[in-house]
């Protein structure tokens, strides 16, 4: 099984708009074997739109504690397989 590199970004305590800035900075340098795993207190709509426009795939799920788990991957990966929730 291929092991992909996870870039974890815990944005739960970051002030607006730092999560978006940091996430796009990671996506900019994302290799084909890596993906972004983000924890956020909200579903980051603009980030997901940016990812979609750039041809990336994403999965966004909320856990029981109200934390959003966002996985953004290159088109070759399935983000659902990489989401912990």
């Amino acid at each position: 099984m291929v092991r992909y590199e996870r870039h974890l970004l815990d944005a739960r305590e970051m002030e607006h708009p730092e999560p978006l800035q940091r996430a796009t900075a990671i996506l900019r340098n994302l290799s084909k074997e890596a993906y972004l795993y983000m924890l956020h207190r909200k579903k980051p709509l603009p980030l997901l739109e940016i990812a979609e426009r750039a041809g990336l795939r994403f999965c966004a799920r909320e856990d029981d504690g109200g934390t959003w788990h966002i996985v953004i991957t290159p088109a070759e990966m399935d983000p659902k397989d990489l989401c912990d929730v």
Partner: peptide, 10 residues
């Protein structure tokens, strides 16, 4: 309504 941020479209 729990807004998530600025939409690119809007």
């Amino acid at each position: 309504f729990d807004n998530q941020g600025l939409s690119l479209e809007q």
